[in-house]
Amino acid sequence: MSKILEIENLTVSFDGFKALNNLNFSMDSGELRVIIGPNGAGKTTFLDVITGKVQPTQGRVLFKGKNIQKLPEYKIARLGIGRKFQTPRVYLNLTVRENLDLVCNQNKNVFSTLFGRPNSGEQRTVAGLLETIGLDTKANLSANLLSHGEKQRLEIGMLVAQSPDLLLVDEPAAGLTDEETENVGALLLSLAESHSIVAIEHDMEFVRQIANDKVTVLHQGALLCEGTMEEVQNDPRVIEVYLGEAPE
């Protein structure tokens, strides 16, 4: 199987502090990879580098074999990498439908956005997405009236509307109730059928729900170990740095 994302010897240092330290990472296309690690392990910096928000001090990031370093964020997004932030970031003053429509726009140049009209294909995509994320009855509500969980789902919907090949999801279950967490987990699993996904997560319950493939553990900016959930949980190094003590 071909690799969708390869990261080679990646180092990011902020004023001498190495947020990522000689990190090597790769994943196959179609995979759902969960990345865990204690606070400050460099998980969010990892996503920042992939999406072009932070430039690495050293090393390369290859997306589908193409070096995406030095590209601005919007070009990386257009190549097919979508990112969901830790706190839901949707456009609060637009309606749910408008949020999706904006991302769905196929030609994102200034003048085609100004003069173009949404075509029927895009409208169908939006309608389909509204149903997938379960917000079709709230399509015309302003996004600031949504609950936290609904905003999370809307943002995941916006991510999919971008039709990316790789989804980067940063702590999608943070601050959700158990029921909402399970909804989001189910949504991620159904998306995993057609996308490659990198999910960063803290909530071990949630990790167990979604981690069918490999789990990667980061520690102090470097890769600590990689394997199935079972293997990772029983790895003594992981238990030491992350879980603190053996899980029940």
Binding site: Y74, G82, V90, L94, V103, K108, T113, Q162
Partner: peptide
Amino acid sequence: RLLKAIRDDETRVRFSGY
């Protein structure tokens, strides 16, 4: 709507490919 989006969250706009 994109202008409003830029006003409210410019970083998000970048990550959406604009």
